[in-house]
Amino acid sequence: MASNPPGPCCATGFLHEGTPKGKLITIENGIQAYLATPPVSKAHDGVGLLYVPDIIGVWQNSMLMADAYALEGYTCLVLDLFNGDPAPLNLEGFDLMGWLTKGSSGDNPHTKEFIDPIILSGIKFLRESGVTRIGAAGYCFGAKYVIRHYKDGIECGFVAHPSFVESEELAAITGPLSIAAAEVDEIFPVEKRHESEKILIGTKQDYQINLFSGVEHGFSVRGDPNVKVQRFAKEQAFHQAVVWFNNHLVDKREYDTKL
């Protein structure tokens, strides 16, 4: 495995301040999502992002991050992977593995058999909305599903502090991948980073791994904005993602158009 299964650190963190500017929508099969659209003057025509969230799902922080991607010119779709049953934030004693395998109600599993079709619906929605080049940003739990779905139309990926990623999944990517990692992370520790690096070299795809000191798992979404080192790492991880997408989606599209 290229990263470990989720743990308690995947559901802890800080709520960020702000008012989401996008809108909640329903796509095919009744899947709930949040759609952030860029200002017309900044929009990258035909380029969009699938935002695959952590286990907190479509919430304040993920919506604000989607809005930030939109301000950078990207149509951004955040998927509800959990059928209205996200993990609670900062709930002491939360049975994470029970929630993953059975859901809160006992009959709503959050396993790949149920989540893969949601990812495919999100990709389909973007395509039908006029997006011809699809990038994907995956956070924690969501990173696995970015990496799994290159074969279904994701051309370029960014993931932060990934969890649950199988070595075989990482080895099968067919496009560029950027990773933002935390210095302290039992889910994506040193040995898993090094294993992932070896696998990425073998893929022959463009890759990048940035390591941020002084922060822990979840920093790019749930870090404390009042702590300087955490705020800096969160902002720089977002900048890392934007520059990666600009280079591998926007610039590539413009280059292809000139050919």
Rank of each mutant, 00 (worst) to 15 (best):
I187L: 12
R231M: 03
E195L: 12
A137L: 07
S121Y: 06
E186K: 15
I201G: 05
L126W: 00
Y145S: 06
E166C: 04
G135W: 04
K192F: 11
C140N: 04
V131N: 05
T132G: 05
N210P: 05
A160T: 09
R222G: 03
E195K: 13
E216M: 05
G135C: 07
F141T: 01
F158E: 13
A237Y: 00
V165P: 11
D152V: 07
H194Y: 04
L177R: 08
I147K: 13
T132V: 13
A160K: 06
V229Q: 04
A143P: 15
C140S: 09
E191H: 03
F141P: 14
E191P: 03
S167T: 08
A137V: 05
G130L: 03
V215N: 00
F188Y: 14
K228E: 06
R222W: 00
S121D: 13
D116Q: 06
G202Y: 10
I119M: 08
A182R: 07
I154H: 09
V221T: 02
A180K: 14
E169D: 08
R148Q: 14
Q236W: 00
A182T: 07
S167F: 02
S220E: 02
I154C: 10
E186L: 14
D224H: 04
F164Q: 13
K234G: 00
S163C: 14
A172S: 12
Q240C: 13
I154S: 12
I209Q: 12
A237N: 06
I119P: 06
E168G: 07
S129W: 02
G142R: 09
Y207K: 04
Q240I: 12
S196I: 04
A180G: 11
E183W: 09
A143Q: 11
E183G: 09
H239P: 02
L170C: 10
S129L: 03
N210L: 10
A182Q: 08
A160D: 09
F188A: 05
E216P: 03
I199F: 02
I134V: 00
I199D: 01
G153D: 12
G218R: 01
P225T: 09
A172C: 06
I134E: 04
G142F: 15
S213P: 11
